[in-house]
Amino acid sequence: MKQLLFLLLTITVFGCQKSTNETLLFVGSYTDKQPGEGIHVYQFNNETGESVLKYTLDSITNTSFLKLSDNGEYLYSVVESQMPHHGKVAAFKVDTQNTKLELLNMQDCGGLNPAHLEIDNTGNHLLNSNYSDGSLSLFKIKENGSLEALSQVLHFKDSSIIKSRQEASHMHSANFSPDGNYVFAHDLGADKIRRFTLSKTEDSVALKNLKDIKTKLGSGPRHFAFHPNGKFGYLANELSGKVDAYQYDNGNLVFIEDYLSYGQQQDIYRTADIHISPDGKFLYVSNRGPEEDTITVFQINQDNGKLTLVERTDTGGQHPRNFAIHPSGKYLLVANMFTDNIVVFHRDLETGKLTKLDKDIKVKSPSSIQIKIYN
């Protein structure tokens, strides 16, 4: 009788729970400026690197950048990027039990061509960067994960020396500082990192502009990654093909050194995404042609933040706009936008080097990846 009771309790407690350590992969795509299959959700096998498609969000336009909340409960996406009218930001509830997304709400993003989303370390605020009209918008995240109407929009007018790309301000991304007190926004058109304080009251938060940080002319600041230790930051410059290393100290970024991400000098550079391994030992950067589609691997000096080249690896496709590192550090996944494939690499934890696996995911125009282990 006692054995039967124990068995029933075991079934009751464990039988209805979802298996632990399930990993979900979220992929955002361009949809040719018309409603289409914008977001795909895959079940990712942590042992083999294989993926199984579980859900597709259809009839939505140009969901080209995704951002997952730290707890994985909510997914945020830009909507209607690269359109002639204001884009939007959508909030979704992640249903891990049924592996699908539930739309919570959608808000006007306050500008043209939303390109990047970032969430602060409290999970209460979301920043959106609008590329085409050089603007930055701030949203309050409600307790249920939905977005309030935008609370602030800042517009910038500026330019720099490459007239074909820097004729106006182009805000490409923004990051909250590790201490949560500052925002750094990266203006490709102006060759500037725009710096803000977060002015907080009991009811609201607002951005207040400080003195901008100038990058080298023609750099084209695009994406940025802070080191896990909070002491260093790294800027991927699209137009110069270089990575700038900075020391971070209480709202200041002090330039250390820059490094060519490409294997050789070219007339045109298209450096794109940048991420640091979970252990903080290695930095990864993607290069999108025209003659080189690679992931460049650097080793990070933990004392001074300087970089040492490890290798450059072909991405197995064209135009690696975005990539992601598995939370365990074991895999790196690259979204090759022009060849409609996501390539999975095994990542050596000791050397940082990448080995391509035969686990490609076929998906049209992938442009953004988020990955999360659900315990």
Rank of each mutant, 00 (worst) to 15 (best):
L147Q: 09
G111T: 05
S160F: 15
I256E: 07
S59C: 01
F196D: 05
A190P: 00
P84D: 13
V183Q: 07
D58Y: 12
F282V: 02
Y246L: 05
N322L: 10
Y331L: 06
S240H: 12
T61D: 05
D314E: 15
D258N: 15
L239Q: 03
G251R: 11
A90H: 03
H326L: 12
I11C: 12
V52C: 03
H155S: 11
N98Y: 14
S204H: 12
N304F: 02
T61A: 05
F176Y: 14
K2E: 12
L283T: 02
G72Q: 04
P178N: 12
D258I: 11
L332E: 00
A168K: 15
V153N: 14
F196P: 03
H227K: 07
I276H: 05
D348E: 10
Q107T: 07
S159R: 12
F298M: 00
L7F: 12
Q82L: 12
L207M: 13
V343C: 08
N336L: 06
K33D: 14
L5Y: 12
G87R: 04
T271L: 15
E118S: 15
G316E: 02
L198T: 02
Q318V: 08
L332H: 01
H85I: 10
L126Q: 10
F139P: 04
A335D: 04
E143V: 10
S137K: 07
T294Q: 08
G329N: 08
L217N: 10
H227P: 05
G233Y: 01
N181Y: 11
N301L: 03
Y259L: 03
S129A: 15
P84N: 08
P221M: 11
F298K: 00
D360F: 05
I60R: 04
L147A: 12
K359Q: 14
S261K: 01
G233F: 02
L117W: 00
F255A: 14
Q264V: 09
D133K: 05
K359R: 14
K100M: 15
L357P: 02
K142L: 13
L210W: 05
S132C: 09
E80H: 10
D108W: 04
V344S: 02
T63P: 14
V243F: 13
C16T: 13
T23S: 13
L333R: 00
V89E: 10
N124Q: 15
N62S: 04
N252V: 05
T99F: 13
S368A: 13
N304Q: 02
D133L: 06
R312G: 07
H40K: 10
V41L: 14
F226T: 04
K142I: 06
T48Y: 09
Q3N: 10
N130Y: 01
Q34R: 11
G317S: 12
D32R: 07
G317K: 09
Y248A: 04
P84H: 06
R222V: 06
I39C: 04
L217P: 09
G329E: 11
L332W: 02
K2Q: 09
G180Q: 09
S159M: 11
D203S: 11
P228D: 03
M106V: 14
L104F: 00
L207F: 04
F298T: 02
T10I: 15
L126N: 09
H172G: 01
K216H: 07
A236F: 09
M337A: 05
C16G: 14
I300W: 01
M83E: 14
L333D: 01
H326I: 09
G180P: 08
D120V: 06
